[in-house]
Amino acid sequence: MTLISRFRSPRTQGILLLTPALGVYAMFAIWPMIDVLILSFQDWNGITENREWVGLRNYYHILYNDPVFWVAFKNTFIWTVLSVVIPPLLGLGLALGLNQKLILRAPLRAIYYLPVIIAPIAVATMWRWMYDPFFGLFAQLLADLGLSSWAVDWLGDRDVALYSIFVAYVWQNVGFSMVLFLAGLQSVDSSLIDAAHIDGANRRQVFKNVTLPALRPTITIVLVLSTISSLKAFDIIYGMTGGGPAQSTQMLALWAFTQSMEIFDYGRGSAVSVVLLLLTLAVVIPYMRWSQKQESDAQ
């Protein structure tokens, strides 16, 4: 076969079109994932040539001898539960409201979505300043209301800090759920709603029996995306507390980073990463199977 005719084969052309994207993806996204798995069975400080195999020692260490790991695990769990419940519920509420024909609907939607496009690290910086115990927004508001005694050191108090960060996270993420729900609501058949009204159904009945069933696929998507994005919470915590005070806001993603990049224990950091990766896969794989099934049902 000459070069020209080879070039004309659809298969070759397809491979040429695929290679740049697949190549960079395999090398810079898939390989690091494999490498993190390998590293989790090794002892390495990031500098020496030698990566020594240590079997399951890193896992043993993080599970049995590292109290911070369990704090991070617990915080990640709390964080995930909160972020799967609160932002999607608020987002659904806003979407239902803003799906009505209301005056100034578009600007209202824009306001709710605005925080989504702000860099998480800038959100962290903004809220750190708002939580400033002396001149921050909350300290001032409480002082104006004569409630200074309610003021706490929002990011400095071990019992409060995680939830203070979460408030900022909600502020940033509600708009995302809202937009997905708004799009999902477009798929609700309006003639069904009209028919239900004619039959004398009230708003609640319409919501429960018409809107909610039609939203089911959207709800699944929002919940899965919320879970995934909550497991990777990193920027906002790094920026607001760095995991402190006294590790009270430590999370798995941040702890993996700290172990590897700041304590230079790549093995233990990678073991934490693998735990987080497994947790993510436990959500992702069923979801992918579900969406494959949806797709083949649709065809």
Partner: peptide, 18 residues
């Protein structure tokens, strides 16, 4: 598609390494 769901935050250390 699998990659769309992966948290790269998990791979910061091997990424640095690579």
């Amino acid at each position: 598609l699998f990659g769309a769901m992966l948290p790269f935050q998990v791979m910061l250390a091997p990424l640095f390494n690579l």
